[in-house]
């Protein structure tokens, strides 16, 4: 997996209203309108996700969310009803879990770990 330093992602969703419910209720992210077609979902680590039904060239379907404790976040989100496509697994970069939003967008919950310290 590549190291991702992006703090904002542009994501296309099939149904904005459903997506907003998913991001606010399940992922517990802050939601605010950006323009008539776009909303911003902001995570605790201040990653902004621009959600829109309309296609644009900046959009990606791989979103990386950093966390200081992947196991804690995994349990919290699982308790909110989120089904993970990958349980917390050990990768060279750290501990990583994965899930999707139902619109073929893949989210990676990443806890970076430095093993040489």
């Amino acid at each position: 997996m590549k190291e991702v330093l992006a703090e904002s992602f542009y994501v296309r969703v099939g149904n904005l209203s459903d997506a907003l419910t998913f991001f606010s209720d399940v992922l517990e992210m802050e939601i605010e309108p950006f323009d008539t077609h776009t909303y911003i979902a902001t995570s605790k680590d201040e990653v902004s996700i621009f959600l829109s039904e309309k296609q644009n060239e900046k959009q990606t379907n791989q979103i990386y969310l950093n966390t200081s404790d992947c196991i804690e976040q995994y349990c919290l989100l699982k308790a909110n009803g989120l089904v993970f496509t990958q349980v917390p697994s050990y990768q060279p970069e750290g501990l990583i879990a994965a899930f999707t939003d139902g619109y073929e967008n893949h989210y990676y919950l990443v806890e970076p770990r430095k093993y040489n310290d």
């Binding site: 404790d69 196991i71 804690e72 349990c75 699982k78 308790a79 050990y90 501990l95 770990r113």
Partner: peptide, 29 residues
């Protein structure tokens, strides 16, 4: 990873951790 996970667990304990699902997940790891 053992050190990372145990330090996370310890941190949660210091905050009064009571969530059995979370404790079991730490123990599994």
């Amino acid at each position: 990873d053992m050190k990372y996970n145990i330090l996370h667990l310890k941190n949660q304990i210091d905050k009064g951790l009571d969530n059995e699902m979370l404790i079991n997940e730490y123990l599994h790891h």
